[in-house]
Design a protein around this nucleic acid. Structure first.
Length: 821
RNA sequence: GCCGAAGUGGCGGAAUAGGCAGACGCGCACGACUCAAAAUCGUGUUCCCUCGGGAAUGUGGGUUCGAUUCCCACCUUCGGCACCA
């Protein structure tokens, strides 16, 4: 063993480069269809090519890689692809600031990041690399748009949408964050604009997306998605205006309070406002509407502000009791939820209560909770939202119990004035972006024929190369002199292309499908590849995508399923989320804080294996946490120790005792058992601790003369196989130095020898009144009675029993005896 | 306000079908090697103590022979949603 010059020091830079080249030239990580093996599609979220790989990328990708490698050693045919989500704004900003074409900027970044990524030593099959800004990719993104359009799932409408004044584009609801409603990307507060935009009907799948049957996704993600979809049960009830008899539908979750409705409120934007406002109220109403629309969402949605509103002069008839009640408008009613109109029940809804008190409107109690004193309108200081017995509610007075709402719905239905209804908070997905660097929306606007999809044979609709960005902030596609000029595919007349591009989340909704066959040109993917690899077995990535990418991709899959394009109900069976690596100051890493950690520098100093191992080790993967430069020294030390333990001969000629050999094998197989479990559960930190612990034990056994024994050879072989997924280079190098067949990464994951792992002796813990008083080494299979006898015989135990008789003795076989006196 | 997650040594974190709290690592201390230092190796390291023990997993209760783990209430931190009818 050892190098020619006699020294054999661990030189990560040398061995990592060597093996990366060898693996690549051998195509060791190529994943091809092989029906003789079970498949495993492992996927980690693809990065945006920002230009520099940061430690967060390593944190997301290398554990995912280790898991994929483990699966491969378990006998699965594993595909682990990588690509780039390469459309998006930063490319365009670079174009504006530095006068580089977004395509060139993106290509350069991809090239650089690909090279950086290769230093990770991950098992990416680069033949399957997919780049979403490539025309061969966005051709199919556009094709999907057309399929959605044909199936009525893509539509255009004018509505008030969120506009980022800095990015000069509209944003989806999910991309507007925080109390100040800022742009997810540049943090500028958004404003509202009334624009005609394309939407996808995500709401059509709201109900289905609430169900997570058959998928193993974290509760947390399910929770976030469920909250975001925001299902609420209630009733739809039709009121009518008193004079003209206009229908006025409202949604309520409390139909049991219908008899307490003393007025109605419409959103200022409600279509009926103009029609019903009386001549006398017109001026006041118009002024209010104008003011409401002018306000920003933040001003308008501030929950702590005083209630404002205006009477329309009109009245509605409450269908449950025929009462005439006034119709007001107020900005606390949102146009975008329910029907944009409510019945107001001030006695039982705090918002309505405040409104009623501000404007002196009637309050009527119609619910009496069981555990409260009888409530009266005069004495109320706040609304009583609790459920209870219906009172003052005509023939339904006295109705009570958990099913009150259901009973009322049934009654409403019988009368033909309403029915049970479900509302969702989820909105349709706004996908139009007024920017250049995205997939052009493949639509032609013809003055004669209307909205016409680009014929599939004409796809892709390519982005023009010769573009310039004007300070107006408008999209170069709109300003381009000729690009939008096109013949209508139907009538042949002069028409115009849609100059908007698609939200990049559209590109990432199906990238996992393009990996199947990135070069395929007869369809978005090769059906044979689809049949073998789909669905994705394990998907890993950041939790921040719970309400964006992960919802869009589910929507996309379900929509395609209903068109007969995909199969199954979900695209990704198992999802796991990593946490975030923070700076040493426990703050989020950022250049402005100066607390970033550069992986390239670390790789140069320690080698990729150490960086990988430290990232696995320092915290629970799902949790993340602060980086530590002194912490990584510990993992570096561990790898150097393992290196010398395995590659250096032992000088001494001691012969290990049988006990030592037995103990060595026991530790090895016990560790194998726990590491196997940890790989299944994504518990990477304890994989490393177990490996460290075993290395400490093995070093001890080596000193005791175990070196060179069959048990030692077995231990080393198993040790290297367990290391292989986490530190692939050093494992491969030591494997080779031991003369084992290339490659360690194609070896079978070892099986636990249960017999070897079994303990012969255990330390029996003896407690008196629940406190540990003695520890006695006994045979592992000791009988309960014997354990009890030994425990009671202990001198220490007798001292603590103080001569009192044992009232009760609890024996947990193999663990402890608790004596109660 | 609503939904969810988390509180364990000086630090990062282990341990939950209820059974030895603090694995593993960092840091620190001491020792070996060295002229010396670094590196490396070894030993120790929750706190208090009258060296018999005692206390301790955010706080207070409860269930249990026994609770970091289960139940109730509260405090703190973080994430998401929020005039959503």
């Amino acid at each position: 063993m050892g190098e020619d010059n006699g020294t054999n020091v661990y030189d990560p830079a040398m061995i990592e480069q060597k093996w990366q080249q060898r693996w690549e030239s051998d195509g060791l990580y190529h994943a091809d269809i092989d029906h003789s093996q079970p498949k495993h599609y492992a996927l980690t979220m693809l990065p945006y090519p920002s230009g520099d790989l940061h430690i967060g990328h390593w944190y997301a990708m290398t554990p995912s890689d280790a898991r994929a490698r483990y699966k491969r050693m378990q006998g699965y045919n594993v595909m682990f692809p990588m690509g780039f989500d390469s459309f998006g704004l930063p490319a365009e900003n670079a174009a504006i600031q530095r006068n580089i074409h977004p395509r060139i900027w993106t290509e350069k970044n991809i090239e650089h990041m690909r090279a950086q990524m290769k230093t990770m030593g991950a098992m990416f099959d680069w033949r399957r690399e997919t780049i979403s800004s490539d025309p061969s990719y966005y051709r199919w993104t556009q094709w999907f748009f057309i399929q959605l359009f044909r199936h009525g799932l893509a539509y255009r409408k004018e509505s008030p949408v969120d506009w980022c004044p800095r990015c000069n584009t509209t944003l989806a609801r999910e991309q507007v964050w925080g109390d100040d409603r800022h742009c997810e990307r540049c943090e500028t507060p958004v404003i509202k604009k009334n624009l005609v935009q394309w939407f996808f009907k995500t709401t059509q799948y709201a109900e289905e997306m609430l169900h997570y049957d058959g998928i193993d996704w974290p509760e947390r993600v399910q929770n976030l998605q469920t909250n975001w979809i925001g299902r609420s049960n209630g009733a739809m009830v039709t009121f009518k205006t008193a004079r003209e008899g206009h229908e006025l539908k409202i949604f309520t979750t409390r139909p049991d309070t219908l008899w307490g409705a003393t007025f109605m409120v419409l959103a200022p934007e409600h279509e009926l406002v103009k029609m019903i406002t009386t001549e006398g109220q017109k001026a006041e109403v118009e002024a209010y509407v104008e003011e409401a629309i002018r306000q920003t969402d933040i001003q308008r949605e501030a929950t702590d502000k005083e209630k404002t509103g205006v009477f329309t002069g009109a009245y509605a008839i409450n269908p449950v009791n025929g009462e005439e009640i006034p119709i007001w408008i107020a900005d606390y009613v949102l146009p975008s939820y329910g029907t944009g109109a409510i019945m107001a029940v001030p006695a039982h809804d705090q918002r309505d209560f405040e409104f009623a008190r501000t404007f002196g409107l009637n309050i009527r109690v119609v619910i009496q909770p069981a555990d409260m004193e009888p409530i009266t309108e005069e004495e109320m200081t706040e609304a009583v939202p609790a459920k209870g017995t219906m009172v003052n509610s005509g023939e339904l007075s006295g109705t009570t119990g958990d099913d009150t709402v259901a009973k009322v719905c049934e009654w409403l239905e019988g009368k033909g004035i309403g029915h049970a209804e479900v509302q969702y908070r989820l909105r349709d997905w706004l996908i139009s972006r007024q920017r250049y660097w995205g997939a052009p929306i493949p639509i032609i606007h013809c003055p004669e024929c209307g909205i016409i999809p680009v014929p599939e044979k004409d796809l892709p609709v390519r982005l023009p190369e010769d573009v310039e960005w004007l300070p107006t902030g408008e999209s170069p596609l709109k300003l381009h002199p000729t690009w939008k000029q096109v013949r209508c595919p139907v009538c042949g007349g002069q028409a115009e292309r849609d100059t908007d591009t698609m939200d990049t989340f559209m590109c990432s909704s199906w990238y996992h499908l393009r990996y199947l066959s990135p070069g395929y040109d007869k369809g978005p993917w090769d059906p044979a590849e689809y049949d073998y690899w789909m669905p994705v077995d394990t998907y890993t990535g950041g939790i921040e995508h719970a309400n964006m990418h992960l919802m869009y991709t589910r929507f996309f899959h379900k929509a395609l399923r209903d068109m007969g394009i995909t199969e199954g109900h979900e695209p990704m069976l198992q999802l796991r989320n990593q946490g975030m690596v923070l700076g040493e100051d426990s703050e989020k890493m950022s250049k402005s804080r100066g607390n970033t950690v550069a992986p390239d520098v670390l790789v140069n100093k320690y080698g990729a294996d150490t960086v990988r191992a430290y990232l696995f080790f320092f915290s629970r993967w799902s949790q993340g946490g602060p980086w530590s430069y002194s912490g990584i020294e510990g993992t570096s030390r561990w790898l150097r120790r393992v290196w010398s333990m395995i590659t250096e001969d032992e000088d001494g000629s001691t012969q290990a005792s049988e006990d030592t050999i037995r103990e060595l094998r026991r530790k090895v197989h016990q560790t194998l058992g726990s590491i196997t479990h940890d790989f299944e559960e994504f518990e990477f930190n304890t994989i490393i601790s177990s490996l460290m612990e075993l290395a400490n034990n093995m070093a001890q056994f080596k000193r005791e003369g175990a070196y060179g024994s069959p048990a030692w050879h077995e231990a080393v072989e198993i040790y290297l196989k367990m290391m292989a997924p986490v530190t692939p280079h050093i494992a491969e190098e030591m494997w080779m130095q031991l003369g084992k067949p290339y490659s360690i990464h194609t070896q079978q994951w070892p099986a636990v020898d249960e017999e070897a792992a079994k303990e012969d002796e255990i330390t029996l813990v003896v407690q008196v009144n629940g406190k540990v008083r003695d520890r006695i080494v006994v045979p592992a299979d000791i009988a309960e009675e014997d354990a009890k006898a030994i425990a009671l015989a202990s001198e220490v135990v007798q001292r603590f029993m103080e001569g009192k008789p044992a009232r009760k003795v609890v024996v947990i076989p193999g663990r402890l005896v608790n004596i109660v006196v």
